[in-house]
Design a protein around this nucleic acid. Structure first.
Length: 200
DNA sequence: AGAGTGATCATG
DNA sequence: ATGATCACTCTC
């Protein structure tokens, strides 16, 4: 009997941001563009904790053109351009009064590899297609037009429940990448990733 | 270690 | 209006 993949609903994202960041590991990120399906197993995330987190874009509490996305309900995409060249893909968490999000930093490509190689022609192997937030967006065709899209409706972008259960010992954590400006938050262990030794 | 790239935001 | 900054990637 063929069972349909289960799509993570809005409830999943409207909970503690650290839980979301940890529990996204091992799930499958799916993007559907022009009828083509691109997917990969999420193996690295980072939690951004809103007003209490100097590394979070929303930390000032001021609602601007960029940060207004954080004030949508949990389960909406937050996509921004960085260094004039790369996009980063996040999913807003919690409710509209808590502007928090999880950055998807890396996935292991599963479906749509040929399209990904077309979009990232210099990639030397499958892992290198999406082992970084900018590379992930490039290979998965995620750009600014995805900003504010819902991630819980199963249309253009969503997350499916992964096949494998992820034991706790597979999950590592450590300081987030590229936030050296963020004072004491520099050392907060809000980056989560699957230990590569278990992944084959 | 340095370059490339342009939106964003705090200044004024 | 101006300018510094940047949740990155690639090449050396």
């Amino acid at each position: 009997m063929l069972t349909e993949a289960q799509i993570l609903g809005s409830d999943f994202y409207q909970q503690d941001t650290i839980n979301v960041a940890e529990q996204l590991l091992g799930q499958k990120l799916v993007v559907q563009v022009k009828g083509r399906r691109l997917s990969g197993i999420i193996n690295e995330t980072e939690a951004y904790l809103g007003l209490q987190d100097p590394a979070c874009h929303s930390c000032s509490g001021v609602k601007t053109a960029r940060t207004k996305t954080f004030y949508l309900s949990g389960g909406h995409a937050y996509v921004y351009l960085i260094y004039g060249m790369y996009y980063c893909f996040n999913i807003v968490t919690m409710g509209p009064s808590q502007p928090e999000a999880v950055l998807i930093r890396s996935v292991l490509p599963v479906e749509g590899l040929s399209t990904m190689y077309q979009r990232s022609p210099t990639a030397k192997n499958d892992i290198l297609l999406a082992n970084g937030p900018g590379k992930l967006c490039r290979s998965f065709a995620i750009d600014k037009s995805f900003n504010e899209k819902p991630v819980f409706t199963g249309r253009e972008v969503f997350v499916e429940k992964g096949d494998k259960h992820i034991p706790r010992e597979w999950v590592e954590s450590g300081p987030r990448i590229g936030i050296g400006y963020a004072q004491d938050a520099v050392h907060w262990p809000l980056r989560y990733y699957l230990d590569p030794q278990y992944l084959v």
